[in-house]
């Protein structure tokens, strides 16, 4: 059982590193990981069947931005392992795996909070001129911590059984998990405020508020905001700089046609 748990833990590492190191090539998806589990445990057919049904269930869940839903990718690995090792049906195995998915989500929130500290270690390293250490915060420590985040729960769940996990989930008080969840929102607010502090000045504050209100009142998404912002910025630039002496030279006017490749201003 120890070796099996170890092997399944490493399937978990493969799963998490897909979205960490490979830009989310979808190798983390239940259909793939369950098949791999089936392959390693010598029962491909069960792996395929469990993978297909969990994949069907979670195909609609899209992870975008900072949201942390129950971790179905982690649950899928444990679920297919139970189905193969204990001959349980997919439904039974999934019911056992759901507490683990919830636990996985909590660990995810905690881990992403801890990783905020690596950012500050990297900040300090740069100040001291230790650039290698700053880079390793990302590529070494980030990889290691995220791998552990999947390896440990999967290893323990398979090695100790699901009863243990269920008890663990019951012990953790809700005030702590809910509180950490709110704390993670505060951290996001802090990160955005840091970005603002490098760009905001008196003249530009209205544009910050404009973007905020357009989402708040009209419900536009960020892509729409960026498109409208670009058009607005180009129009305003035309008004502000047209008579400016700096670009009034013939040379400057000729260059104005293609001076910014990021905006669709070829027709201007």
């Amino acid at each position: 059982m120890f070796v099996t748990s170890l092997i399944l833990g490493f399937v978990g590492v493969f799963c998490i590193l897909d979205s960490r190191l490979l830009g989310r090539l979808n190798f983390e998806r239940p259909l793939i990981t369950c098949t791999i589990v089936g392959l390693l445990l010598g029962n491909i057919q069960t792996g395929l069947a469990v993978g297909a049904s969990i994949e069907l269930m979670s195909l609609g869940l899209v992870v975008i931005g900072a949201a942390a839903p129950p971790d179905m990718n982690m649950a899928a690995i444990i679920c297919s392992a139970f189905a193969i090792l204990t001959d349980a049906s997919t439904e039974t195995a999934l019911a056992l795996a759901i507490p683990i998915a919830v636990l996985g989500q909590m660990i995810g929130v905690l881990m992403r909070t801890i990783l905020s500290n690596l950012t500050h270690v990297a900040d300090r390293s740069i100040e001291q001129g230790n650039f290698r250490r700053a880079r390793s915060m990302h590529i070494v420590w980030g990889t290691l911590l995220y791998s552990l985040m999947y390896f440990v729960p999967i290893f323990l769940a398979v090695y100790l059984g699901t009863d243990f996990v269920q008890k663990l989930v019951e012990i953790i008080p809700t005030w702590l998990t809910d509180g950490l969840n709110l704390g993670s929102k505060f951290l996001t607010a802090y990160g955005i405020a840091l970005l603002m502090s490098s760009m905001l000045n008196k003249d530009l504050t209205v544009y910050f508020l404009l973007g905020f209100f357009l989402v708040g009142y009209i419900g536009l998404n960020i892509t729409a905001i960026a498109i409208f912002a670009s058009i607005l910025a180009i129009v305003l630039t035309g008004l502000k700089f047209r008579s400016g002496p700096a670009v009034a030279t013939a040379n400057g006017a000729a260059l104005a046609d293609d001076y910014d490749p990021l905006e669709d201003d070829d027709d201007l």
């Binding site: 955005i192 504050t205 404009l210 536009l220 180009i234």
Partner: peptide
């Protein structure tokens, strides 16, 4: 100027 406007509107969003 353009980047400032677009960037801050995106941050607001």
């Amino acid at each position: 100027y353009i980047c400032g406007i677009v960037g801050l509107m995106v941050i607001g969003a």
